[in-house]
């Protein structure tokens, strides 16, 4: 791996472009998908099937005045939306999209992503606190307790993966899963044992739920909760402040999906032993994203204490049991 400085910078520019387009068209997909689930058409007027709608929305957001209301902490208020974007964008840098397609190879990339994800939570906290709005304040408090509760099962699950592959490097984790879905960590019947293959789907589900909760998506969108807290931490934001929060949210979703793909779904590996490549990676992450959207438009929202109960009473015990069993299986087989 060369240490050329230009490589990460060019990648970063690519990620930024990707972030904008991704947020715009994932938003479009979400609206269309929600429309189809609800037996309506979704956006139709701007362009064919409303394809230009995201562009129109983006232009609208950019052309609006950046309003900083009276009584807000003006520095933190401006910092928060940026803070929502930066960690997500930075974590993209260590994600291996394919064999050698990675901005910067980092040995402890799994740890780095989790560290950055915790900063992402600060955006909601600061945005909520700085807004000086009581709903935003409640939202900030909620998001902290939620993130705290869900990082534990997530990390415990990651430890099982690390135990299986013996590495904290995302590229190595993905590389260890090459050669058909029977090698993937979600169902590692070939690379590990059948016993392991039975408990890993549970780990996958736990990790999936946690990543939905970490990215503040319905049914765990406690911080946003528009029917209770109006829009939570985003209540006072308009124009690109709101736009950055939204882009950050979608980018966080993408990072979450990338992580799941690498940790559980074999990264860029083709299923059934087909030759791998970046396209498989993209197919996998977008399938995961569609699932997240599908989940959002199916369930009602949970309630903050039920959400914490789910984490502390169900996800953490299950993930701990998984961890112990994995350790035992590694020792035995």
């Amino acid at each position: 791996m060369d240490t050329n400085i230009w490589r990460p910078i060019l990648y970063l520019i690519g990620f930024m472009a990707f972030a904008g387009i991704n947020a715009a068209y994932l938003g479009w997909c979400e609206r269309k998908g929600a429309g189809r689930i609800q037996r309506r058409t979704g956006p139709m007027e701007v362009g064919f099937q409303g394809l230009l709608q995201p562009l129109a929305d983006g232009l609208k957001l950019m052309s609006k005045q950046l309003l900083v209301p009276d009584g807000v902490d003006s520095i933190l208020f401006r910092v928060a939306p940026i803070l929502a974007m930066i960690p997500a964008l930075t974590s993209m840098a260590v994600i291996p999209f394919a064999g050698n397609v990675q901005a910067r190879a980092v040995e402890l990339s799994v740890l780095l992503i989790f560290a950055l994800a915790s900063i992402g939570m600060m955006a909601v906290l600061l945005g909520g606190w700085a807004s000086g709005n009581k709903y935003s304040l409640i939202s900030a408090a909620r998001s902290v307790s939620q993130n705290l509760a869900y990082e534990i099962p997530m990390l415990v699950t990651v430890i099982t993966i690390v135990m299986l592959t013996g590495s904290m490097n995302l590229e190595e984790i993905a590389a260890a899963q090459q050669g058909g879905f029977w090698n993937w960590n979600i169902f590692p019947v070939a690379s590990h044992s059948l016993a392991q293959a039975i408990i890993m789907p549970v780990s996958f589900i736990i990790f999936f739920i946690c990543s939905v909760a970490e990215t503040n998506r319905a049914p765990f969108d406690m911080a946003e909760a528009e029917s209770e807290l109006i829009a939570g931490h985003m209540t006072e934001y308009g124009s690109m402040g709101f736009g950055l929060f939204m882009m950050g949210e979608y980018l966080n979703m993408v990072v979450g999906a990338c992580l799941i793909t690498i940790l559980f779904l074999g990264g860029w590996d083709g299923p059934l032993g087909l030759s791998g490549g970046i396209w498989w990676f993209l197919v996998k992450i977008y399938l995961l994203l569609f699932t997240v959207i599908w989940v959002r438009w199916t369930y009602p929202r949970t309630q903050i204490y039920k959400l914490l109960n789910l984490s502390w009473k169900i996800l953490i015990p299950f993930s701990l049991v998984n961890l112990l069993l994995t350790a035992a299986f590694i020792k035995v087989f």
Binding site: A34, I37, Q38, R39, R40, A218, P219, D221, A225, E226, S227, W297, T298, Y299, P300, R301
Partner: peptide
């Protein structure tokens, strides 16, 4: 259901 954050039922009921 909208109060509880479920959106799709709204449209089914409206249908």
């Amino acid at each position: 259901l909208l109060d509880l954050g479920g959106f799709s039922p709204l449209l089914y009921a409206f249908d």
